[in-house]
Amino acid sequence: MFDFMSRILGGKSRLGEPRSKSLAKERLKLALACDRVELSPQVFEGLRLDLARAVSKYVEIDEAGMKVRFDSSDRRLSLVASVPVVGTRRTGQARRSKSRR
């Protein structure tokens, strides 16, 4: 049923492959976001790493599962980060006691 619906909505072809226009749109979304911020991939990676470092000062995170992207819907740019937290105990207090050991 869901497959039928998504076919009706034009998302997938009969064989379950995405239609070419969905690919076009996804690719354009990314390209436009990069164009709009004028950030090179290297600088972007730097931003991602700094962000990970900053957040992990306070909570334990799964850095591999972290997603950072620019969203530019309605021409207003925002930085959207999704950071999986694996532990919340790692407070400033806990860290200090950890480093003492």
């Binding site: 072809s13 354009l28 021409r75």
Partner: peptide, 19 residues
């Protein structure tokens, strides 16, 4: 082409460009 999902439709383009 739009109908069979092989061309960006009007909403797609407006969504992307937001004008």
């Amino acid at each position: 082409m739009v109908k069979r999902g092989d061309m960006l439709d009007i909403d797609d383009v407006l969504d992307l460009l937001a004008i």
